[in-house]
């Protein structure tokens, strides 16, 4: 089983449960960025896989997806650690999906500790986005 996490902590229901299966897509971390535009057509939930927390491609993919104007749900799924929660949110993800083992080892409080991801962010400062 997996656990969904957002700024409020561990979720008990999936906020995307209403989304049609047709409108969902899972993207691996080696997705060719040139294909994103086609892949996203008609999608409302995009999950990007993190096979290892040390592989940061998913953050850049999320950023590119947002920069192309995608407004739907964006989810980081796999080996993302609590220390990366702020990076995930700042890159454009709405939430994170991890497996139960990791959720046991890194309980809710460790994720909530980074719920303040909008503060202390050089990127918003340099882009003139108020925190």
């Amino acid at each position: 089983m997996t656990v969904l996490i957002n700024d409020t902590g561990f979720l008990t229901t999936d906020p995307t449960r209403w989304i049609d299966p047709e409108a969902r897509i899972d993207l691996p971390s080696d997705t060719d960025p040139a294909r994103l535009r086609c892949l996203l057509i008609g999608k409302e939930l995009v999950r990007i896989a993190f096979s290892s927390f040390s592989d940061g491609r998913g953050f850049t993919l999320a950023r590119l997806i947002r920069q192309q104007g995608y407004k739907g749900w964006l989810r980081a799924q796999g080996h993302v650690i609590a220390d990366q929660y702020a990076m995930a949110r700042r890159s454009g993800f709405d939430d994170v999906e991890i497996d139960d083992d990791l959720a046991t080892r890194q309980p809710e409080d460790q994720w909530l500790a980074r719920a303040n991801w909008q503060a202390h962010d050089y990127q918003s400062r340099l882009r003139g986005i108020a925190a």
Partner: peptide, 13 residues
Amino acid sequence: RQWSTDHPEFQFL
């Protein structure tokens, strides 16, 4: 330095 510090995309290059 400011731009690269804690850049969310570029901590796991």
